[in-house]
Computed example of a mutant assay.
Amino acid sequence: MSEKSVSTVIIDAPLADVEAALFSIGSYPEWLSSIKKADVIESDSSGRVLKAKLAIDAGMMKDRVTLDYDWSAAPASLSFTMDEADLLTQMDGAYTLKAIDSDSTEVTYELTVAVGMPVPAMMITKAQKQTIDAALKELAERVG
């Protein structure tokens, strides 16, 4: 059983700008260093991505994963679950957004990852935390 890693940051950008970056999953490779490729497989009638295949290179976590996106709590939250992957057995996460004021947004990112090979839990937790921290930093750079 994997443990969830969570981090929260305040980004100096309006909520709409943060949403625009986070909700444009196909453009992740433009600003997220851990996402090398993002192919949108399925979208809904509003153009929101429902399924995407991502090539991930986040240190020890290197894989091709297909993620299903859940927009039911949008725009306050966007969550995803892993449909399939080459190596990972679990990759679930969520971004939760909250406007602090007109020029700043609180973003919380939670991530749970499991691998199908014996890897110490401490290493997985460290990799999750590094992935989250890097993603939040890169998001802030993208919209700030």
Rank of each mutant, 00 (worst) to 15 (best):
M91I: 04
L97K: 11
T108M: 05
I56T: 12
A16P: 03
L88K: 00
E106Q: 14
A55P: 12
G116P: 10
F80D: 10
D17K: 09
L87T: 11
K53Y: 03
D63N: 15
E84S: 15
R48V: 02
F80E: 07
S45A: 15
V107W: 06
E19F: 02
A74F: 01
M117I: 15
A73W: 01
V115P: 10
T89Q: 06
P29E: 15
P75C: 00
V113H: 09
K62Y: 06
S72E: 12
D83F: 01
T81K: 04
G116C: 13
A13T: 02
Q90A: 15
E84Y: 01
L111F: 09
A85T: 02
A20P: 00
S34P: 09
S24A: 12
T112L: 13
L32A: 13
S46C: 05
G93Q: 05
A114L: 08
L87V: 12
Q90P: 05
I56P: 11
A13F: 01
G93A: 04
L50G: 07
S33F: 08
G47S: 05
K36L: 13
D92W: 05
F80Y: 13
S46N: 14
S24C: 08
S72P: 00
D17W: 00
K53T: 11
M60G: 12
E110C: 13
S33Y: 03
V115Q: 09
Y28A: 03
D63G: 13
D57A: 15
V65A: 14
I25S: 14
W71F: 02
G93V: 02
T112H: 07
I10F: 05
L22Y: 00
L88M: 15
I11K: 03
A16G: 08
D39K: 12
D39S: 06
W31Q: 10
A52S: 08
S33R: 11
A52H: 02
L97H: 03
S104Y: 08
L67Y: 08
E30F: 02
K36I: 08
V113M: 15
S43M: 03
G93M: 03
E110N: 10
D44Q: 09
A73R: 10
L97P: 12
V49Y: 06
S104R: 15
I56F: 09
A52C: 09
L67K: 08
A94D: 06
L111Y: 03
D17H: 03
S33W: 05
A85N: 04
V40K: 06
P118R: 10
A55M: 04
P75N: 00
L97A: 02
A55W: 06
L111W: 04
E30Q: 10
E42Q: 10
K62F: 04
S27T: 14
V40F: 06
L32M: 14
E106H: 07
G116W: 12
W31N: 13
D39E: 14
G93D: 00
S34V: 07
I11A: 04
L78S: 01
V18F: 00
A13K: 02
P29G: 09
Y28Q: 09
M117D: 07
D83N: 11
K98Q: 08
A99E: 01
Y95R: 01
K62A: 13
S24K: 11
S104K: 12
G93C: 11
D92E: 06
I41H: 03
M60R: 13
A94C: 13
S34I: 11
A94S: 12
D12C: 05
Y109T: 05
F23I: 02
V40E: 14
D70G: 00
